Computed example of a mutant assay.
Amino acid sequence: MKKTLPDFKQLNDRIIAEPSHEPKLVIETNLDPQQATEENPYAEGAQRVSKTFEAFFQGDES
Rank of each mutant, 00 (worst) to 15 (best):
M1L: 14
M1E: 12
K2H: 13
K2P: 13
K2R: 14
K2F: 05
K3V: 15
T4N: 07
T4P: 00
L5N: 00
L5W: 11
L5K: 09
P6Y: 04
P6W: 03
P6M: 02
D7H: 12
D7I: 09
F8L: 12
F8H: 11
F8D: 11
F8A: 09
K9Q: 07
K9E: 15
K9Y: 08
Q10Y: 04
Q10C: 07
Q10D: 15
Q10N: 14
L11Y: 08
N12V: 05
N12P: 00
D13F: 12
D13V: 04
R14M: 12
R14K: 06
R14E: 08
R14W: 08
I15Q: 04
I16C: 10
A17D: 08
E18H: 03
E18V: 14
E18P: 00
P19D: 01
S20D: 09
S20Q: 03
S20Y: 05
E22T: 07
P23Y: 03
K24N: 06
L25A: 09
L25W: 01
L25R: 11
V26E: 12
V26L: 07
V26W: 05
I27C: 05
I27G: 04
E28K: 14
E28M: 06
T29G: 04
T29V: 07
T29L: 05
N30L: 15
N30K: 11
N30M: 10
N30W: 10
L31A: 13
L31T: 14
L31N: 05
L31P: 01
D32M: 04
D32R: 03
P33M: 01
P33R: 00
Q34S: 11
Q34T: 11
Q34H: 00
Q34M: 09
Q34A: 14
Q35M: 07
A36N: 02
A36F: 02
A36M: 03
T37L: 06
T37F: 08
T37E: 04
T37W: 03
E38H: 10
E38C: 07
E38D: 15
E38R: 05
E39V: 15
E39L: 13
E39I: 10
N40F: 01
N40C: 13
N40P: 00
P41A: 09
Y42E: 10
Y42T: 12
Y42W: 10
A43Q: 02
A43H: 02
E44G: 00
E44M: 15
G45K: 01
G45F: 01
A46V: 13
Q47C: 00
Q47E: 10
Q47Y: 05
Q47P: 03
R48C: 11
R48Y: 06
V49D: 01
V49I: 07
V49Q: 01
V49A: 03
V49L: 03
S50Q: 08
S50I: 04
K51R: 14
K51S: 11
K51Q: 08
T52E: 12
T52K: 08
F53G: 02
F53E: 00
F53W: 01
E54Y: 02
E54I: 13
A55V: 13
F56C: 06
F56K: 10
F57S: 02
F57L: 00
F57H: 00
Q58N: 15
Q58K: 11
G59I: 00
G59E: 01
D60F: 11
D60R: 12
D60Q: 12
D60K: 15
E61W: 05
E61S: 06
E61T: 14
E61I: 15
E61F: 11
S62A: 12
S62N: 15
S62G: 15
S62D: 09
S62C: 06
